[in-house]
Design a protein around this nucleic acid. Sequence first.
DNA 1: ATATTACGTTACGACTCGTAACGTAATTAG
DNA 2: CTAATTACGTTACGAGTCGTAACGTAATAT
Lengths: 194, 194
Amino acid sequence: MSAVTTNARGRPRDTSVDAALLRAAVELLAENGYGALTIEAVATRAGVGKPALYRRWSTKEELVVAALGAHVAPPRDTATGDARKDLRAMLGGLARHLSGPAGGAVFGVHVAADGNPELTEVLRERYLAPRAVVLTEIVRRGKADGQIRADASVDLVRDLVFGPPVYHQLITGNPMSTRRLSQTFDAAWRALSA
Amino acid sequence: MSAVTTNARGRPRDTSVDAALLRAAVELLAENGYGALTIEAVATRAGVGKPALYRRWSTKEELVVAALGAHVAPPRDTATGDARKDLRAMLGGLARHLSGPAGGAVFGVHVAADGNPELTEVLRERYLAPRAVVLTEIVRRGKADGQIRADASVDLVRDLVFGPPVYHQLITGNPMSTRRLSQTFDAAWRALSA
DNA sequence: ATATTACGTTACGACTCGTAACGTAATTAG
DNA sequence: CTAATTACGTTACGAGTCGTAACGTAATAT
C-alpha cells in the first residue's frame, strides 16, 4: 500500500474540462454575482454535462473555492526585507483581487462557509493559509529590525491592514479607490510602526 | 389626494404575526445560518402561512433585513462629546451585535445584496444610514475640538475603526475578543488622533 | 481483448420559491 | 345590520434548481 496515488486506470480526466469549468464559474460570478450562480449554467457554458462537474466538486461552494484558487494569483513572497513595502505590496495584491471579476465572490464564499465546517476548512487551507504564511514572515522580520512595534501580533497587523478595504467593499459594494487605499494603509502603518 | 395613508379599510394586519415572523427568522438564522434559511421554515415556526409572510416582504432578503432592523438595537447617540469615548461605545455596540444571534446574518445580507440594487438600497437606508449619521456627528465634533486629525474623513474613520473586527469575524468565523477589540481600537485611534 | 474510468445526454425525485385559489375571520363604510 | 374590504390559514400549482442515476460512447491501462 501507500503506493503512488497517481494510479491512472481508466480514461483520464480531460484537463480542458477542468479549465473550462473554472473559467465558466469565474465568468458567471463576474456577470451575475454569487447568488445567481447556477451549477447547470456553469456546466452549460463550459460545454460539459453536470456529471462531469459533480465528479470534481460536489457542491457549489467547493466549485467557487476552486475557481478562486485557480483565478487568483498566489501571494508572491516579495521579501524585500522592508516590512512597510512588503505589507503595502501584499495589500496591493488583495486590492487587485477584490477589484477583479472574482472580487464579489470572496464574500459569498465566506458566507456560504457559515455553518459548513468542511467548506470552512477548505477555504482556510487553500486560500487563507498561504497568505498567512507570507504575512507572518513579514511581521517577524519587521519586528526583528524594529520597524514594527513589538507588541503588535500578526493577527492585529492582518486585521488592521486588510480589514479596512475589505470592510469598505462589503459596505459600499465598490472596491476602495487607490488613493484611499494608500490613505488607510498609512493610517494603519502609523499605528503599527515602532 | 395626499390624504393620510393610514387608511385602514378591511381587516387590519395582526401585529403579533409580524413579531412572530421576525422572531422566527432571527432564531433560524442563529441556528442554521443564512444559507439554510427557508421561507417555509420561517412561516411554519411562526405558526402562519406563507401568504402572510409574502404580504409583508416579497423576498427572503427583505425579510432578513427587516429581522436585523427589528432585532438590532439602533445606535444610541451617546453624545458624551468625547470623540474617543463615543467611537469606542459605537464599536462596542457593533461588537455586541456581531456576537449576537444575528451576527452571522449581517454578512449574508450584504452578499445577497450583490447584484441586487433594490436590496442594496433597503439595506443602506434601514441599516447603514442611521449609523452613518451618528458617526458623522461624532467625527465632526472630534475634529472641531482637535481630538481627531483634520485630514481624517468620515469614511476613513469608519473603515479603520469598524473594518478590523468585521474582517476578523469574516475570516475567522468568530467574533473578536473584547481584549483584541480594545487593542485594535487603540491602534486605530493612534492613527486618527491629532 | 477486457476492465476501468470519463464523457454527454437524458431523465428523475426532492426541495424551494412565489403565486393563486378557496373558505373563514375581522374591521370599516353606509 | 349589511356590504365591502382586507387579513388569515390551508392547499395546490408551475417553475427553477439540486444532486444522482441511468445509458451508450470514448479513451486508457493491463
